[in-house]
């Protein structure tokens, strides 16, 4: 991550009216924006549109950034809010969209019910488990996690944000972030151990 001084210098250069300096900022933070888009938005056209919207918002609001937080946290918050607003708006037209906490809680209950059902004696775990199968199984399970869980695990594991920073980005209390992080990883582990024999997983 860039030092505070170089970030200040970069922002000054951008505000001096040179859009090409903004390219430097885009390159520094495109991974963060990409991670959030990847986990929250499934449609590629929507991702393209939103990536532009996010960076233009960053450019237009850069003069109001006063280093009260890290630049990465501030950019993460803009990306988070833009995606959520987009999903909320879209839900008005497409009722089956995902952004609904109540719906997400139901989703988690369904996952738990699946696990319970799978643990019944009639369930036979797969006989063979290889690395790529396990990998693709876990990734599929990540995709069906509730949206806020997906965002928390991405920000924590891929962008190395602390719990406090994630709570700033998502605008929720730190306790909620901790709980999402714990529950999402436990759910993934439970799904995995339900699908495969524990012995098979001792690779």
């Amino acid at each position: 991550m860039e030092s505070l001084d170089s970030e200040k210098k970069l922002i000054e250069n951008i505000l001096a009216g040179n859009p090409d300096e903004f390219r430097v900022l885009i390159n520094q933070y495109k991974k963060l924006v990409s991670h959030i888009l990847f986990r929250l938005i499934s449609n590629q056209n929507d991702r393209d549109e939103l990536s532009q919207e996010i960076f233009i918002k960053i450019y237009e609001n850069l003069k109001s950034f006063k280093f009260q937080s890290k630049l990465s946290t501030w950019i993460g918050r803009i990306a988070h809010n833009t995606c959520l607003n987009y999903l909320r708006k879209k839900r008005l037209h497409f009722y089956d969209d995902q952004i609904n906490y109540q719906k997400d809680e139901n989703k988690e209950r369904n996952i738990r019910a699946d696990i319970h059902e799978a643990k019944s004696p009639s369930f036979l775990p797969d006989e063979v488990a290889n690395q790529s199968q396990v990998s693709s199984f876990i990734n599929n399970e990540i995709e069906v996690l509730p949206i806020q869980y997906r965002e928390v695990i991405t920000l924590y594991h891929l962008d190395n944000f602390s719990i406090k920073e994630i709570s700033e980005i998502m605008g929720v209390p730190e306790g909620t972030v901790k709980s999402h992080l714990y529950r999402s990883r436990k759910l993934l582990k439970d799904r995995l151990t339900t699908k495969y024999n524990l012995e098979e997983l001792c690779i």
Partner: peptide, 9 residues
């Protein structure tokens, strides 16, 4: 075994 599962996740 549980730890291995967590490590894979």
């Amino acid at each position: 075994s549980q730890l291995s599962a967590y490590k894979l996740v």
